[in-house]
Amino acid sequence: MEFEALPERRKEQLMAFNRLLTIMDELREQCPWDKKQTIDSLRHLTIEETYELSDAIIEGDLPEIKKEIGDIMLHMVFYSKIASETNTFDIADVLNGLCEKLIFRHPHIYGDVKAETEEQVKQNWEALKMKEGNKSVLAGVPKSLPALVKAMRIQEKARGAGFDWEEKEQVWEKVEEEMQEFKAEFNVVEKSAIDTEKAEAEFGDLLFSLVNYARFVNINVESALERTNKKFIKRFQHIESRAKEQGKTLQDMTLAEMDVYWEEAKRL
């Protein structure tokens, strides 16, 4: 479709993207910091920006989400600009490659395959990825993902291949089984020393089973744990604030005194 025939808002979107590309070109040519960057040097900054976007999403802060999306967009353009300087690829190659992949992986939209449910779409998606050359269904799970997120992605990938429990009750039975095995290894009643390596292994199995159950009941484990982290921080800082009002430090307080303020924080 010719540019002039596009809806006005699409024209504005394309012009905004063109403006970003132009600014990126200028920064790469003129800014000492931008000129120095490499794909490797940007990597840790991209990870940081991704976590900042995650924080904004958890907080439900839409203005901050918009800002963080922009920061990540800049990084994507930056990587593409650096690669274009060695004629490896540029932003057009990146976007066209993405479009082709999306079309290929959505034959129920762009072809004659039928997929009427989300589950069918996921199964088709994993089957198509195998056709693209993946040696394993799990090959697409990044090695450097945090373990909790990785557990959920592994389970989702396995489900896409048809390897999964049928009912959530079965998953909960597995949770209880793993809990008992962990309890046995941890010797919670006895005072004898434990085998740390075995206890750690059983604890890992227990966490994995809990992640599995969370997935069955549509709980995002990473978001759930982070919300709990934030809740704990808020309540703990309330204790610190109340202690300061009393002219005390936490080290000056008994556990019972701190618990009073903890319960107070829970009511706020």
Rank of each mutant, 00 (worst) to 15 (best):
Y79A: 00
Y79G: 03
V94C: 08
I91S: 12
A83R: 11
E64G: 03
F78K: 05
V77F: 14
T88Q: 14
P63I: 12
T86V: 11
E68C: 06
L95S: 05
S84I: 02
H75D: 05
M76I: 15
G70F: 03
E64Y: 03
K66L: 12
D71P: 05
S80W: 00
Y79Q: 01
E85G: 04
K81D: 10
P63G: 08
I72M: 13
D90H: 06
L95M: 14
I69H: 09
I91D: 05
I65C: 07
Y79K: 01
M73W: 07
M76F: 13
L74P: 00
V77M: 11
D90I: 12
D90V: 10
H75S: 10
S84P: 02
D93Q: 05
E64C: 04
G70I: 06
I72S: 07
Y79D: 02
G70A: 11
A83K: 06
E68I: 08
D61F: 11
L62M: 13
V94I: 14
N96V: 05
K81A: 07
V77G: 01
E64D: 08
T86C: 00
A92P: 00
A92Y: 06
T88E: 14
M73A: 15
T88A: 14
V94F: 09
E85H: 11
M73N: 02
D61S: 12
P63W: 07
T86W: 01
Y79S: 02
